[in-house]
Write a protein that binds this DNA or RNA. Structure first.
Lengths: 131, 131
DNA sequence: CTCTGACTTGAACCGCGGTTCAAGTCAAGG
DNA sequence: CCTTGACTTGAACCGCGGTTCAAGTCAGAG
């Protein structure tokens, strides 16, 4: 069993963030030693999942619903499929953004935003949003 | 020239958001008609760029610095190259997240989070973060 | 048994990205 | 000229994702 400081150290989160996640029902301590929380080591992989989801743009509330999901929850399935499509769109955006950044890091236009190649990227993005 | 309501309509933002962006120096009206802002149509493509950057996880402050960039700003170039690498990592994360979501939408594990295929995804993510 | 210092709680606060509100201005139509 | 209603301002407020603080508890070392 791990205490909160150990979980914090291994997960890279602060104790206050862990308590905050608990209030939002993302994690639960395995038990207490007096007042002090003690955690199963498995909490660490759950925290990794949470971290990954957060950095993919899910809110805390979404993650909580998701973690509580059971296979019968058809509505949630639909939401997940929706989210998968959203994520796909974001992947395209990010891909263009990465290409633009790479170009911008070498481009000599002044100001950089006026670079025609750069502008084309966003024209493409706009076209895709409509089409 | 467009008035603020027209820019709002065409960009999908609210007038208050446009004024907020102005305070943060993301956009500037071309002039005023009395007190009322009037905008060049070009502001719309700038707003699309801003929107794209926002949805790629840039903060308002980052975007402001970026929009003001000139080719001599070597520090900014480095930051952009860094950011390109960060974005690349995020693309990988999102790709895994999309795959997981697609799987989860059909998976029958109860609870869904306990699905081994699902867990593998995050184990992969963890491994990649180290390597 | 006493002390210490890491833990506990709830409540207040923070920065971000805006929105909402009250009060005032003013361009355009009648 | 008068009204109207879309604009203007600054200031207060919002939800999110936490952090910080004050006050209290208590496990374990000495």
């Amino acid at each position: 069993m791990l205490d909160i400081a150990e979980v914090a150290r291994q997960s890279g989160l602060t104790p206050s963030a862990l308590r905050f996640y608990e209030r939002r029902e993302l994690i639960t301590p395995a038990g207490r030693n007096g007042l002090r929380r003690k955690y199963h080591p498995e909490v660490l992989s759950r925290l990794m999942l949470i971290d990954c989801a957060r950095s993919c743009g899910f809110t805390i509330a979404e993650i909580a619903r998701f973690l509580a999901a059971r296979p019968r929850d058809e509505e949630l399935r639909l939401r997940m499929a929706d989210k998968a499509r959203e994520v796909d769109v974001r992947i395209d955006q990010l891909t263009r953004m990465r290409d633009s950044l790479q170009h911008a890091a070498f481009c000599t236009h002044d100001p950089l935003v006026e670079c025609p190649e750069f502008k084309r990227t966003f024209a493409d993005a706009a076209r895709e949003e409509k089409g």
